[in-house]
Design a protein around this nucleic acid. Sequence first.
RNA 1: GGGGACGUAGUUCAGUUCUGGUUAGAACGCCGGCCUGUCACGCCGGAGGUCGCGGGUUCGAGUCCCGUCGUCCCCGCCA
Length: 597
Amino acid sequence: MLEHLGSFERTHYCGEISEKDVGKEVRVAGWVDTTRDHGGVVFTDLRDRTGKVQIVFSPEISEELVEKAKKLRHEFVIAVKGEVRRRPPGTENPKLKTGEFEIYARELQILNRSLPLPFPVEDEVKVSEEVRLKYRFLDLRRPKMAQNIIFRHRMYQVVREVFNREGFIEIETPYLTKSTPEGARDFLVPSRIYPGKFYALPQSPQLFKQILMVSGFDKYYQIARCFRDEDLRADRQPEFTQIDFEMSFVRERDVMEVAEKVLRALYRELLGIEIGEIPVISYDEAMERFGTDRPDTRFGLELKNITDIAQKCNFKVFRSVAEKGGIVKAINFEGGAELSRKEIDELTKFVGIYGAKGLAWIKVLPEGKLQSPIVKFFTEEEINEILRRLNAKPGDILFFVADKPDVVNAALSNLRLRLGKMAGLIDEGKVNVLWVVDFPMFEWNEEEERWEALHHPFTSPREEDVDKLLEAPGEVRARAYDMVLNGVEIGGGSIRIHREDVQEKVFKVIGLSDEEAKERFGFLLEALKYGAPPHGGMAFGLDRLCAIMRGEESIRDVIAFPKTQRGQCLLTGAPDTVRKEQLEELHIEVKEGEEEA
RNA sequence: GGGGACGUAGUUCAGUUCUGGUUAGAACGCCGGCCUGUCACGCCGGAGGUCGCGGGUUCGAGUCCCGUCGUCCCCGCCA
């Protein structure tokens, strides 16, 4: 039954049949989307990656041909030779790009069959992700998914165009490299030649690109795969792609300008959107106003600090928090006074996820009266100052969280997002980009009782802070910058340390002994001794950016073959056990009872 | 490591708790037949189920209990 391609040569893609082809003989090939058998005439929608076109099999051409066409089923692979005709008046299909035309088939080759499908190949498919991932080859035939993947391809091209035009050199860095402590868990690759030794897959090309600067390449870029063995989320995969670049003899602004060029080109050329001036705000300001270093500034509902009032008030919950170094912040959910007790309870539960022990509230009723479980603890002056500071009007509800700063900020920044969504305050059409700068260099890790690099330990401190590195690490500011798009961190970078003495100091602050530093990063320290130029760079998260630009919720929908939340590839079944001989060659023994069936 | 939602034909779901009871339904898809302008074609007929898996309670379990596996969302984690 199946036929060979023979001398068939495709002349057109399905989705590209147009006015100029009318009357011409064309040859198309693809997958059978649907067939409609009318007894006499048979209609088939033929699909390839460009779209669909209707094929007509008519008994007026050949009874035999129609009989053959009746055998077509979903996703059969066929090649068709026929004449493009304008459809008879009244039978045009406005839903199809090619809906004014159709191909009158003269020849039909059935090249392959398909089993009945586990799910229909169409955009509005309501099927579990589990099934989609198992049959990813079918999922990727769905026009929306195919377009996502093609869009991603076009992103690579635009990115390369910009960097090439700006004089950057594309260089590949190794995937088999050295494990580095600090940061995420590494994926390890055992060495066959060196028993007991391991390569690590890179968490980023960071160290290699810095070394390339020392080598004098001056401007480097790469669309690089990165690997991190951490738990997954909707926006996190164990392997992901970065648009990575690095430049020598630059300051923050130079790097940021290149990044802006890349982002602007992507939006202009792929979506026809011009991105305007990109504002810059400090980390401190972002934390104060939004409670996060990646604020979504498409809407208001900003946080207000009332710790000073809390310190003096008679509400013990607030006051004791303030006295212990905690803070109290509040948010005015305008027009929210109609929230029910149940809804408030739900929001209380919601902030609990982020560690908040409670959610205090004050309703300003339409007639101006206050309703709240906590007003009785405050003087009239204090209440008036709170209302003034939050710009509260009748009909509003104020929410308060008191706790350690990170808990308050996490709880309220997430509450802000939730309320913004709930009230429909977020304009999904907006493209809101901003820079966050002036990050602290270090963060105190309470569990490990040591300072940690907030960005990474190769980030340069500000010149004027270098002297404070050892005495007051908490006050040191980093020369780092993050790019935030609609509340998503899409990229980040920094001016790096190019002096060995400064790099050693930073290692010391984060508790890395000289020996350890040498052991793990000796090659970097060594390189810094041989004429390392001042340099800096940045990396964009390509998957996230692609997902945002395509309006997808999950980066899995812009990755051809993603992993599940437990890190499995449902298509191939990875990870999987390997043969005993393979393990032996690698000098690896799996502990008894820890093997999965 | 923790919290939550879900798991029943190929697929999406109903049935599941309060209230366990003979033969587990629907839609789409699939198979067969009819139909010359459909495009979510239409009409007639048919097949298709280890109710995720294991154990328990019971005269009797899709339904109740315990465990386990899987998918998704979140917290921790992700320099």
